[in-house]
Nucleic acid binder design. Structure first.
Length: 580
DNA sequence: GCCGTTTTCGGCCCGACTGTTTTCAGTCG
């Protein structure tokens, strides 16, 4: 069993952690961290890169680390890793996770007191052993104890859609409670639309900063105030999430927003570019060599100072966005307003909660021009799925709904589709004759996701090759925080989808967001076409499209690459080409 | 250890906060 990208990324992260504790060269440590993050975000297995002799083309990976990847792939272990494990073992590295405790002190606790795990640390604090150490007082010990408490109760990461809903309610409350607020935004990984986030970061601009802080800590959502000063506060919400608010003068809004949005990697690269021009950048603004400051009240001014166009937050991961910005080739990212259709919706014909007419009306109210009703095929546990016979009857209802729209003078259209299961053998759960009569066929994996890579990939490839299949829904089947997706050869899936004119879906369900952004980007690079669907089972679910759009944007998608931003006739032309 | 619109050698982001300090080291975002 060869190591996954995740496994290898974890090895390099562990190497960096151990080196940090041992006090090795910080730039060497940074190199291992950068390599680890680059690997974690790759769209293809490392073995594929090596096979194409392309490991060193990955930014952040040079000859040394490429060789180490080779050793890991071949042998499953690495001498450097084993050696570091002996000097700073996993239990010691775990202590780095504790807030307020960093590498220097972890090393001292380990070497001077023999503390080698978080449990050891808790015990040592209970016995008051830490304050005996030179440079440690009772306050240091207490801070570390508090850090351990925080670590224990720290909620695990929540999905981005959930975080957005919490943060927007919070912002609404703050706007009402804090007059004099000139600017307010969420920042951090949430603004970059990462699929999961660990805490909530808010940034505000106001002249009276203290008044905004007091309004914030007084919000009804706040369960506990961790700290609150004149410009910064940290609270724990009743939901268990930590929320940080920073308030600053309006003149520095732009530089602060850029700084707190990150990512850290993007910021480091940005500051390197600034240095090359003799400017030092921080959240305060640009500092010239003579010490004078250039303030930026708007974020676009920050980038403009380095002659760069504004870079959308979703792209700020130091994944070639600066090259694209410099060469004026940043994509014009798709927006929610670009979408004309939702091509994956359920009704009471299967497990949906509303009729076809209700779903259509909701879509129209949301500004869409056409939809596809795609109920589940009758298969396994799905209640009331469609059979060939029921599809015939459903077609009549779809025709009636369309006739009603036309009679009322609306230019709105319902396409008749299906979401057909791919069986464990790779068959489709409905016969070709039934599929041939439909406007649109979605095929998806719901069962046997744990099959070996070759087998589950082959299933999907067979479905893609079926002339009636138009869309592959939620390709990996992942559920965020609950289960990983199928172990697919995504490169093969993308290539097949392109060859057969099949669209790949970004499923907007809050805990799916599948395809994920890195696969979207890879698919688009190779020339695939994407669709963003809600998979709505209720009219309210149509708002989910927003999350799919954010995921597409993280994948560098422009509107022309998203099939449901096209007019209905263009989409149907593409789909019919496929069936011939 | 990586990397190049000054560089194949010599760089590599920045400031705020905290504690235990008489000038700084560690941690964080």
């Amino acid at each position: 069993m060869s190591l996954s990208n995740r496994d290898i990324a974890d090895v390099f992260q562990a190497i960096a952690d151990s080196m940090e504790i041992l006090g090795e060269d910080r730039f060497r440590i940074l190199a291992y961290r950068r390599a680890s993050e680059a690997i974690a975000d790759l769209p293809m297995p490392l073995a594929d890169y090596r096979a194409r002799n392309a490991l060193e083309e990955i930014p952040g990976i040079g000859k040394t680390i490429a060789d180490k990847i080779g050793v890991l792939l071949d042998s499953g272990s690495l001498p450097l890793y084993e050696r570091l494990n002996a000097q700073a073992p996993p239990g010691v590295r775990d202590m780095l996770q504790a807030p307020n405790l960093g590498p220097r002190n972890v090393k001292r606790l380990y070497t001077e007191l023999g503390i080698a795990s978080l449990d050891d640390l808790r015990a040592a604090i209970a016995e008051g052993k830490l304050r005996g150490l030179k440079g440690f007082g009772a306050k240091s010990e207490e801070r570390i104890r508090q850090g351990l408490d925080l670590l224990a109760q720290r909620e695990k990461r929540i999905v981005m859609p959930h975080a957005l809903s919490i943060v927007e309610t919070l912002m609404e409350g703050l706007r009402a409670a804090a007059p004099g607020l000139e600017q307010l935004s969420y920042t951090g990984s949430l603004r970059r639309a990462r699929p999961t986030v660990g805490d909530l970061d808010l940034l505000a601009a106001a002249t009276d900063t203290g008044a905004v802080i007091r309004a914030f800590t007084g919000l009804p959502q706040v369960a506990r105030i961790v700290s609150a000063g004149e410009a910064k506060a940290t609270v724990i919400l009743h939901s268990g999430m930590q929320a940080d608010l920073m308030v600053l003068p309006p003149a520095r809004w732009g530089s602060a927003l850029q700084h707190f949005t990150g990512s850290k990697e993007h910021n480091i690269r940005f500051r390197e570019l600034a240095l090359a021009r003799g400017l030092s950048f921080s959240e305060q603004g640009f500092k010239r060599q003579d010490g004078t400051l250039i303030e930026c009240a708007a974020e676009a001014e920050v980038y403009a100072t380095l002659d760069l166009p504004w870079i959308p937050p979703e792209l700020r991961e130091d994944k070639s966005e600066f090259d694209a910005a410099r060469s004026k080739s940043l994509p014009r990212l798709v927006t929610l307003a670009d979408l004309q259709a939702d091509l994956h919706m359920h009704s009471t014909w299967s497990d949906g909660r509303a009729s076809i007419a209700e779903m259509a009306a909701a879509a129209q109210a949301n500004g869409l021009c056409y939809i596809a009703i795609t109920d589940h095929s009758a298969y396994l546990g799905v209640t009331g799925g469609v059979t060939p016979e029921r599809l015939e009857r459903q077609a009549a209802e779809v025709a009636q709904v369309n006739a009603d729209f036309a009679a009322r003078g609306f230019d709105f259209r319902v396409l008749h589709g299906v979401e057909v299961d791919i069986t464990p053998d790779g068959d489709l759960a409905l016969p070709d004759e039934a599929l041939a009569k439909l406007d649109l066929v979605i095929a998806s994996l719901h069962v046997s996701l744990r099959q070996p890579r070759e087998q589950v990939t082959a299933r999907l490839l067979r479905a893609i090759a079926n002339p009636h299949v138009d869309i592959i829904a939620h390709p990996t089947g992942r559920i965020l925080g609950r289960r990983d997706g199928a172990d697919l050869d995504m490169e093969a899936v993308i290539q097949a989808a392109i060859a057969h004119g099949v669209l790949l879906e970004i499923n907007s369900g809050p805990d799916r967001l599948d395809l994920d952004a890195m696969h979207v980007r890879r698919a688009l690079e190779l020339g695939a076409t994407i669709v963003i669907n809600s998979d709505a089972h209720h009219p309210d679910n149509l708002t989910w499209l927003r999350y799919g759009v954010l995921t597409a944007r993280r994948g560098w998608a422009s509107a022309d690459q998203i099939a449901n931003s096209w007019p209905a006739e263009d989409l149907l032309t593409k789909v019919r080409q496929k069936s011939q």
